[in-house]
Amino acid sequence: MELSFDLNTLWFFLVGILLTGYAILDGFDLGIGMLHLMVKGDTERRIMINAIGPVWDGNEVWLVTGGGALFAAFPDVYATVFSGFYTAFMLLLFTLIFRAVAIEFRSKRPMAWWRSMWDRAFSLSSFLIAFLMGVSLGNIVSGVPLGPDKEFAGTTLGLITPYTVMVGLTTVALFMMHGAIYGVMKTEGQLHDRLRNWVNRTIIFFVICYATTTMATLIYHTHMISHFKQAPWLFLVAVMNMLAVANIPREITRGRDFQAFLSSCAAIAAMLFLFGMGVFPNVVISNPSPEYSLTIYNAASSAKTLKIMATIAAIGIPFVLAYTLCIYWIFRGKVKLDAMSY
């Protein structure tokens, strides 16, 4: 892989980074949503929502920008996947809207029935979003039927297979774990202790799912590891991934919540990196006819567009990172409810 690092490869990684950013950031707020119903009492539930209150909107922007970058850099991938997964993506949109509405409207009225209704909507939509995203990811790994005209040739129900459902569950488990750790970091007192227990449970849930999915991938989708034979250093990433997961309970036991959260972020990043390296240089694998696969070359925009966008990204992204860090810094520390809270 010496001089093959061209613009197309760069954009494959940039889209990957945006989606990884999305998974790390929205991952914890989806996880908080999934754990929301496990927390009892109105004040504690409000603390849960306000733990993600200032940032969940911004986190979703990573999805919007990731989608935009996909459209821009690989229009054929964007067109094929979004039209091919039509019904699944529509469901995703409806749940995204529903979740936003639930967060926004839950605390606007004091009635118990009102709040418990939105609590359920918030939690259920968080589950569904994570699950649908996992299923989509699973389909990219297993491949979908594509025609010679780059169009999706399968059916909606064909997207649901035992393997893709397993990836969906793994995503749910991953985000639950990630959210629980974030919750531990942002809360104190009884709620803090209760969420600590949830970290342990969700880690076990996640490790079981992840091990099963990995086994299934190694047995049924061997193309995912073809690069590992040529570039053995990739194996180190897989090891680091495991170590990062193992490090989480260690840090939690020592009460170093922030380090546990960083480990969880590292685990997500490593997993998505391995996923990306597995499909590279394909973006959408065609199954059963692999010659129709969409790659970073046959599905990309022109070199000129990729270059212009790289310039835009080089100017803009340093600013984005700088002020995003500033904003997280302003809202550091434990959640305190006040007049402007949800």
Binding site: V55, D57, G58, V61, T65, G68, P75, I312, I327
Partner: peptide, 25 residues
């Protein structure tokens, strides 16, 4: 896609992050 690409990328990088990030403050 090839033409819209640059405009959309610019919108994401320059506008969306700015707006939603500072909205928190």
């Amino acid at each position: 896609g090839d033409v819209f690409g640059s405009a959309l990328a610019a919108e994401g990088v320059f506008a969306f992050f700015l707006e939603s990030g500072f909205l928190a403050v």
